[in-house]
Design a protein around this nucleic acid. Sequence first.
RNA 1: GGAUGGGUGGCUGAGUGGUUGAAAGCACCGGUCUUGAAAACCGGCAAGGGUGAAAGUUCUUCGUGGGUUCAAAUCCCACCCCAUCCGCCA
Length: 420
Amino acid sequence: MHDIRVIRDNPEEFDRLVALRDLAPQSVMILELDSENRALITRKEALLSARNNLSAKVAEVKRSGGDSAEIIAEVQQMKIEIAKLEAVQSAVAADLHDVLSGIPNLPDTSVPYGKDENDNRLIRDWGTLRTFSTLPKQHFELGEALGMMNFQWATQLAGARFNTLFGDLARLERAIGNFMVDLHIAKHGLTEVALPVLVNSTTMYNTGQLPKFSEDLYQVSDDYWLIPTAEVPLTNFGADRIFSSKELPIRLTAWTQCFRREAGAAGRDMRGMLRQHQFSKVEMVTIASPENSMDELERMTDCAENILKALEIPYRVMLLCSNDMGPGAVKTYDIEAWLPGQDTYREISSCSNCGAYQARRMAGRMKTDQGNVAIHTLNGSGMAVGRTLVAVMENHQQDDGSIAVPERLRPYMAGQECIG
RNA sequence: GGAUGGGUGGCUGAGUGGUUGAAAGCACCGGUCUUGAAAACCGGCAAGGGUGAAAGUUCUUCGUGGGUUCAAAUCCCACCCCAUCCGCCA
């Protein structure tokens, strides 16, 4: 949701930034709607004001025992006109709102222009890629050979894009999630939150999932939606609230199940557990004041990286180009873990500064000396638990098909050092 | 699911058709007093929008959406949510 005042103040700049998202200039059309809307508001309110005055006069006349029939007749006439104007004005306002909330967020100056993921920029990498004496296996090969990963049964239970884990692998996934949350609490100062995974339409709208991306979501009865990420409920902590600057930043984390229809991903990543309809993820959300949000993005990315460092998984950090970013983002870092079984890096975390985009949708504000301003919201995975399990398995696999448990996870596995 | 009672400003809470955008208290901010603090006293304090250089002025908002009326926090309808009891249940 864009701030119309920003567009009024500098329409050329708005069009220049919109172009980075490969959109045609919008400002002329928007400003036309805007001035039409304001003209209608002015006319409507003049009538409303006159009506209020006449109504007050009725009260006055009646108190002094006079006859108010004439005034009443006049106001009755007026009401017809007001209703007409109101209908026209609210339609124009709705159009304007739709346009402003439909345009994606504008990239930060540090974000490179680009068409797709091929234009993303490598920022840094970490860790050395292991050399294997034999060809490294993919996680599903390892898991199925261990008898601890059963996709066939998951298909029988639910369908494609689900999985089941058994024994030590099930426990390892749980260990990974617990480790992540504990690290965020103890070392990063985040506050853990337990959340609903079903939310209402307003909550989904606030973070930008609705109305445009409903095909990516599971909707259940009674107007509930399954969350595709804990970003949705966590970010809504700022909905309809006015924070004092002292309260910010607020840094939250939650480990939840996530549900995605993967509607546009037919045929992609069908083997294994990289892309599923249900997966668990530890999410980080920060509610920040505008002047701090870019620093908070660096901090959040660092929190995510610390997880992979602790688990001894090589990774690289990519700065997404303008058209690879999600619609809400001002700036996004993707963290990609090395998967030796696939011989490639795969996204395991995505940290975004959404600026005021979501905050304006949900009316999240902060008090300042110059009045209330929209807060900034940030979200990042810290990390996707299922994909981290995949990365642990592939990076710590041994020649015999067993998996070495990274040292930091052993306390969560009753000291166990090896699976299989 | 059934019954009852409720949803008013950051919070508590008055308010059943017209000087109520809303009493009072708390919180918060500024001031007086004080060596400093507290207390006391004085003053300020909702949000969003239109207009305006500004001061100001004006509109909207008392769970949400409709309706009645010249006029609605107040009356009517629907829905949502909360509390308590009953039923059911992890």
